[in-house]
Design a protein around this nucleic acid. Structure first.
Lengths: 207, 207
DNA sequence: GAATTGTTTGACCAATTGGTCAAAGCCACG
DNA sequence: CGTGGCTTTGACCAATTGGTCAAACAATTC
């Protein structure tokens, strides 16, 4: 049986793999909804179908579950930006980056909210990663975008703020989901969002 | 002595006004940083310079402080959208709406984060307001924007998603502040953000 | 099938935390 | 200055919660 979600689960035995996976899945559910301090081991244990001491047989502490989730998440989270192809067509590349990020908001809202909660609280667990791995990758891709702009392939834009904009616009539909849906009523926000964000990016980047 | 922050504080005596104000200010500090469940009465009491039982003399419960903050916040939060003038110049109106929202992210990041945290957790305390007051106001202003588009004064855009975009883009700089600063290094994000968001809106709305 | 290793749990603990309460302190006003 | 109402607090409580531990229970190996 393979891991039910996308999270990497190592473990010697089958039982270990299954239970670690169940714990991480339940942890994602609970942490993303209530934040770290608002979540309890009992909630996670119940969600995973285990007893609390049994949880602590697989993870040494509540924090360990939380950090395991965050670490497992980061790679997935950065993949779309990593895949931005410097040799591709600029507008196509940036549009498909935006579309992938929006699809992640639609398909993995819990992951987005977990991340958002961590950043909101000042990223106590991720400060180093943000200033290290994340900054490096963003600076790198910003340079690519800058190059495109200098070559006149897209309009002159601030590449860092362009990336922030894509993050903000796409993640908003996961993180502020209740608000968006409250305002929109019964309509599914995502088709409209995609069309609107395409229009926005295209008009901005047109040289 | 007037209320130190923008929050409305009623109270018969001077002492009441001062202490309720101190509690709300401390509550904003603590709640915006740790969320509702992550905050303790002791933290708030310490921040306000009062004892815990004394806190509970002014507010009946922890939740009461939290909801008092949220209620006091909402009006301030919606003011810029409310001030959107149907008779003004469309581009000017929308640009200055964006600028005011961005300024609020710069000047009142705690308020933005408090709000963001509440929405992230599913808005347990604000669901009604979102579907009522907020939806009504947004629908109304969306109609105004729709009118502008039909008159050819701005490009044809989805007015609801345009409003969401302005929220997302501006609040991002308060809510994800640590991330933005981690990536940007020492630079102040706001000047660059304002220029970039102006460029974005102008190119989008150009008829 | 006995021994070893891996897994699960009930009972328990100390710390934290939201909230209570009666008594004490303080203040204004007659 | 003394009385009555407002304000403050120390002591306390019950519930919650992260975490421990020894013992019971399964699984695997020889």
């Amino acid at each position: 049986m393979t891991s039910g979600n996308g999270t990497q689960v190592q473990g010697r035995t089958r039982i270990q793999a299954r239970n670690r996976d169940a714990i991480l899945t339940a942890g994602l559910d609970v942490f993303s909804q209530h934040g770290f301090r608002g979540s309890t081991l009992d909630q996670i244990a119940a969600g995973a179908g285990l007893s609390k001491p049994n949880l602590l047989y697989y993870f040494p502490s509540k924090e360990a579950i939380y950090t395991a989730l965050l670490e497992g998440l980061l790679e997935t989270w950065l993949d779309p930006l990593r895949d931005l192809d410097p040799k591709g067509d600029p507008l196509t590349e940036l549009l498909s980056y935006m579309r992938r990020k929006l699809a992640m908001s639609r398909d993995y809202p819990r992951e987005s909210r977990l991340f958002a909660g961590e950043i909101l609280r000042g990223a106590p667990e991720m400060h180093d990663v943000l200033k290290g791995e994340l900054k490096t990758l963003v600076d790198e891709r910003a340079a690519v975008i800058s190059g495109w702009a200098k070559d006149g392939k897209i309009a002159a834009v601030d590449p860092h703020h362009l990336i922030f904009s894509i993050w903000a616009l796409t993640q908003h539909y996961a993180d502020f989901d209740v608000q968006v849906r409250a305002v929109l009523g019964g309509t599914d926000p995502f088709p409209g969002a995609e069309a609107h964000l395409e229009q926005m990016l295209e008009s901005l980047l047109r040289p």
